[in-house]
């Protein structure tokens, strides 16, 4: 049960909200308190584009137990249209459908079911366009 953390991360996980440094314009995803480039502490919220390309990917054949029903699946690092990179699962795709350069869109999916008494967790995944 990681409900407090899940709740805190809703803006980034649900709506792709990133932080844009007020001084140098660097975009951080997830948002950071201090800019990793210039050290500034002020930032504004920007929403990331939901299209991008796979930078690299890997097939997960032996996943953690709770994702066992979805194996084999692909995890990918995706570079979005504005250059921001993030890591996520690729929904729906058989492993041979995803490769470096594959165009993807980010979609909203259920990430974790957990056990019957736990909160369902949602967030972004990629899918081949």
């Amino acid at each position: 049960m990681i409900s407090p953390r899940y709740h805190r991360e809703i803006p980034q996980r649900y709506r792709l909200e990133a932080g844009r440094c007020a001084d140098c314009g660097e975009i951080h995803f997830p948002p950071r308190a201090v800019c990793r480039k210039c050290g500034a502490r002020e930032s504004t919220t920007v929403v990331l584009p939901n299209r991008g390309k796979v930078v690299t990917c890997t097939v997960v054949d032996i996943p953690p137990a709770e994702f066992d029903d979805q194996k084999p699946y692909v995890n990918a690092i995706v570079e979005l249209e504005n250059g921001v990179r993030l890591t996520c699962m690729v929904a729906e795709a058989p492993p041979d459908a995803v490769d470096i350069g594959t165009e993807v869109e980010l979609i909203f999916r259920r990430l974790r079911c957990g056990r019957e008494w736990e909160v369902l967790q949602y967030g972004y995944k990629a899918r081949v366009v």
Partner: peptide
């Protein structure tokens, strides 16, 4: 529905 899809998604 996919394994990660439900009425909410």
């Amino acid at each position: 529905p996919g394994l990660d899809e439900d009425t909410i998604t």
